[in-house]
């Protein structure tokens, strides 16, 4: 690789909304254009300010004659999220003009994500990133199992791209509560296998040459049940050699634990992207603590998901 120009590892940027598309059942794909965004890795995240664009500070109140002022300041204009919201990168494209196109996929769960869902093309959004420590491609493992639950799927799209470039053969396992809550587009000509065989059934993973198994809790699409269970038939099939596989996962805590146990039982390297509520996203507030194994009386120490993670080696985490 040619020696890169010295750049900041992270920064604060004014991003421009390039596209904002609904993915069904309150999931959205937001594409942001950012000039000069630093190099990033899959698993890293951006911290996004979700308030109303163009309304950054309090404005003086105008007193109309014979009437009352109409408050418009950020504290009075309605419910505004105070803190930024962290989103893992779902993909990145570097344009010739130096603009970087970043994708995030989010699920509307509160006032911050609701604001993001309303953004129109051309709106300005304040973004800090890239933040955290991402996935590391395990060099001596030519096969990758990518396991994602709900909004844990997006960082695996970015990872699938990187693995493809590295010559690693990837298979994705994407789970959701129900078919419409899966943040992926299903190819109507190739529905997901109900028996759990990987096919090019989702547009996003297919574009990265990654066959995919879909699992839904209610059985409305693909395998019925949790995604970690859907991993087993493939993992234990005769044409998969355990010594060649590395596992990369992101999703809700119970899924993460189940995947870690599955990988540990087969002595497979396993990297997990964790989720935590954060205030600053860069190691200052110390809000997003997680226990990791450590020497000493307790056997554990705290690290920070935002700075030391969000991706951790499953062997390093201290499970209670």
């Amino acid at each position: 690789m040619s020696s890169p120009a010295p750049t900041r590892s992270k920064g604060a940027f004014a991003a421009r909304v390039l596209a904002n598309r609904s993915l069904g059942l309150d999931h959205y794909r937001l594409r942001l254009g950012v000039a000069g965004f630093p190099r990033s890795q899959p698993g890293q995240f951006i911290n996004v300010r979700c308030g109303v664009a163009g309304q950054e500070g309090p404005q003086p109140l105008e007193w109309p004659e014979g009437g009352l002022p109409r408050p418009t300041g950020p504290e009075l204009a309605g419910v505004q999220p105070l803190l930024r919201r962290p989103f893992s990168l779902a993909g990145r494209v570097d344009k010739d003009d130096g603009t970087v196109e970043l994708d995030i996929i989010h699920h509307v769960v509160g006032v911050g994500t609701a604001r993001l869902a309303e953004l129109g093309v051309g709106a300005e959004v304040s973004v800090i990133g890239p933040l955290g420590r991402g996935f590391t491609v395990v060099a001596d493992r030519p096969v990758a199992a990518l396991v994602g639950g709900g909004v844990g799927v997006p960082p695996l799209l970015y990872l699938a791209e990187t693995l493809q470039d590295a010559g690693v053969r990837a298979v994705a396992f994407a789970g959701a509560r129900t078919a419409r809550a899966l943040p992926l587009r299903i190819d109507p000509s190739e529905p997901p296998s109900q028996a759990g065989w990987p096919t090019l059934c989702t547009a996003e993973f297919a574009a990265r040459h990654t066959p995919t198994v879909v699992a839904t809790d209610d059985g409305s699409l693909g395998v019925t049940g949790f995604v970690d269970k859907a991993l087993l038939p493939w993992l234990d099939s005769p044409n998969v050699r355990a010594g060649e596989v590395a596992v990369y996962a992101c999703g809700p805590a119970p899924m993460i634990k189940a995947v870690a146990d599955i990988a540990a039982a087969r002595a497979m390297p396993c990297q997990l992207a964790l989720e935590r509520h954060m205030a600053c996203g860069m190691g200052t507030c110390q809000g997003c603590a997680v226990k990791v194994k450590a020497a000493g009386d307790t056997g554990w120490a705290f690290q920070l998901v935002c700075k030391d993670g969000p991706v951790f080696d499953a062997n390093d985490l201290y499970w209670e």
């Binding site: 504290e75 419910v79 505004q80 999220p81 105070l82 803190l83 935590r276 509520h277 954060m278 205030a279 507030c285 110390q286 809000g287 997003c288 603590a289 997680v290 120490a301 705290f302």
Partner: peptide
């Protein structure tokens, strides 16, 4: 000091609560 257990922060309307525990 290692600080308090997780969760340590929660956002509230126009504010946030923290209980880091002097880590």
């Amino acid at each position: 000091r290692v600080g308090n257990d997780y969760p340590r922060v929660v956002e509230t309307r126009a504010g946030m609560l923290n209980a880091i525990g002097l880590a």
